[in-house]
Amino acid sequence: MNYRIQCFASIAERIGQAELLLPADNDAIRVIELKQTLAAQYPETAELIMRSFVAANQQYAPDDSIVTPKDELAIIPPVSGGQGKAHPEGDLSQENHNEVSSANGRYCLTRQPIHTQAVEQKVSHPNHGATLTFSGTTREVTGDQRTQTLEYDAYVPMALQVMEQIGDEVDKRWPGTLSAITHRLGIVGIGEASVVISVSAPHRAGCYEASRYAIDRLKQIVPIWKKEIMADGSYWVEQDNWDPIARNDANYTDLHDQG
């Protein structure tokens, strides 16, 4: 048997494969040992592998947890977040599908332009007096760099599951609030929306707070990666000191300083 490990974004590009097969010498292995083995096999990518996370069955797995060859495994490099560090890379092939949604339809990944009104309609409720929609668009100039386009990659099933988790967290913190998230994959041009988050609530105060929480959590924990493409090259944007399991809904306090 083998450990079958899916790869994404910068890791997939550096090793030149979207999936790795690691011979299973034992029936189970600790996550840290799995990462160490991969790092030894791909020394040029070792530093990135060691600061990445492993997902087991679409859940982030701590380094001391145990995985088996039967688990669905993926190596998750740091997500783009709001602020990050550039890592020059090459190209990555795209997924075949154009749009997928969660079971309730409120969380979606698409390769098509996002229609803001369609996202807002997903949270329409007759008892809600406030609806707030956040749209994140591609900017052309950041500092002294000029972006031509952005490209997004995702671990699709896990990304949808985590987006739905964010919606559950929002409802737990602000009972009765509805949220919907649609995120682009693939190439996103200047001025186009890469993500639209719509939140509705009985009152505006909770709506503002829930909207900010949703975008901050998306940047922190959803396995979606952003590549900046410029005239003189491209790079994946990665968060420094990224740890998607350092905080959860129970001990969450404030992500506003993450940008």
Rank of each mutant, 00 (worst) to 15 (best):
residue 3 Y to M: 01
residue 3 Y to H: 02
residue 6 Q to E: 13
residue 9 A to I: 11
residue 14 R to T: 09
residue 21 L to W: 15
residue 35 K to N: 04
residue 36 Q to D: 14
residue 38 L to T: 02
residue 42 Y to S: 05
residue 43 P to N: 13
residue 49 I to W: 07
residue 50 M to T: 09
residue 52 S to K: 02
residue 52 S to T: 06
residue 53 F to T: 03
residue 54 V to W: 00
residue 59 Q to P: 00
residue 60 Y to V: 06
residue 63 D to G: 12
residue 66 I to H: 07
residue 67 V to G: 00
residue 70 K to W: 07
residue 70 K to Q: 12
residue 71 D to N: 10
residue 71 D to I: 07
residue 71 D to F: 04
residue 73 L to I: 10
residue 76 I to Q: 01
residue 77 P to R: 04
residue 84 G to F: 09
residue 89 E to V: 15
residue 91 D to C: 07
residue 91 D to V: 10
residue 100 V to E: 09
residue 101 S to L: 10
residue 102 S to V: 11
residue 103 A to Q: 15
residue 104 N to R: 09
residue 108 C to S: 11
residue 109 L to A: 03
residue 111 R to Q: 13
residue 112 Q to N: 14
residue 116 T to P: 02
residue 116 T to H: 06
residue 124 S to G: 05
residue 125 H to T: 08
residue 128 H to Y: 10
residue 136 G to L: 08
residue 139 R to D: 06
residue 148 Q to P: 04
residue 150 L to K: 03
residue 151 E to W: 12
residue 153 D to R: 06
residue 155 Y to L: 15
residue 160 L to A: 06
residue 161 Q to W: 11
residue 168 D to I: 11
residue 170 V to I: 15
residue 172 K to E: 14
residue 179 S to E: 01
residue 180 A to Q: 02
residue 185 L to Y: 05
residue 187 I to T: 10
residue 189 G to T: 04
residue 190 I to D: 02
residue 190 I to G: 00
residue 191 G to R: 09
residue 192 E to P: 08
residue 194 S to R: 08
residue 199 V to S: 00
residue 203 H to I: 11
residue 206 G to F: 02
residue 206 G to N: 06
residue 211 S to T: 14
residue 215 I to D: 01
residue 216 D to H: 05
residue 216 D to R: 03
residue 219 K to G: 06
residue 222 V to K: 00
residue 225 W to E: 01
residue 225 W to H: 03
residue 226 K to C: 05
residue 229 I to Y: 09
residue 231 A to D: 13
residue 233 G to V: 06
residue 234 S to I: 07
residue 236 W to Y: 14
residue 236 W to Q: 05
residue 237 V to A: 08
residue 240 D to F: 14
residue 244 P to N: 04
residue 246 A to K: 13
residue 248 N to M: 08
residue 252 Y to L: 14
residue 253 T to R: 13
residue 254 D to I: 11
residue 255 L to S: 15
